[in-house]
Design a protein around this nucleic acid. Sequence first.
DNA 1: CTATTCTATAGGCAATTGCTTATGAAATAG
DNA 2: CTATTTCATAAGCAATTGCCTATAGAATAG
Lengths: 118, 118
Amino acid sequence: MPVDELSAVFAALADPTRRALLTRLEAGDASVAELGSPFAMSQPAISQHLKVLENAGLISRTRVGTARLSHLEPAALKEASEYMERYKRFWNSAFDTLDHALAAYQEQAQAEKETPDD
Amino acid sequence: MPVDELSAVFAALADPTRRALLTRLEAGDASVAELGSPFAMSQPAISQHLKVLENAGLISRTRVGTARLSHLEPAALKEASEYMERYKRFWNSAFDTLDHALAAYQEQAQAEKETPDD
DNA sequence: CTATTCTATAGGCAATTGCTTATGAAATAG
DNA sequence: CTATTTCATAAGCAATTGCCTATAGAATAG
């Protein structure tokens, strides 16, 4: 259980089973048994994965009879999504090939300035 | 070390120190010592974090003298970013309040159809 | 060559993770 | 009430993680 919310979201997404559970929930709310049916995994294992998703805020849950329906909460993905959006400017620009070379050169120049030998 | 690339990227991002390292690299390539200077953490710890980032494809590294410069590779974020883009339609639409209620209703109707009692 | 600088690796350790089986608890059916 | 269904929790275990200290390795300086 990471301290910050962003870490919790990324950690929750870092598991293929949990990502598959989220994908299933795109089609609508579902019970624990229904969510677990595609997996060769015990029911407690599914419950634990759902708990991780719930703690990350990625799902909410409500009782319906003896069942507990999981409900997708995509808003929790927003912060994480925006975090990565920042990097789009890096893969959409020439920064990768130009600015970094420049930055590296400037560091070299700075280092040589401290011990000038030319 | 997760099996799939997407899991590796999310796992790498699920740590505040590693996210801070990436943020620092936005300003330009940097050595291990320079990257580690803001943290109350040993040099090996920084090297290990950098190894995680490298294995996830989020950075590359080159030798410059005795130093090893880390270089941001934002392309590795693209797949992860696109993964979450899918969910934008959920937080940009009425799906959250409407479609899910509908889906839940349909499941209920289906369940009652299997054991009709009205 | 040796010494120095910068980084990686090895080994250890406590905490966490992802599973298991066994059991407990909540809601409904009869 | 008891029995059944559905799910959560407990306890255990192997593997992983995130740190540490100590040491090894690579490149440069002299």
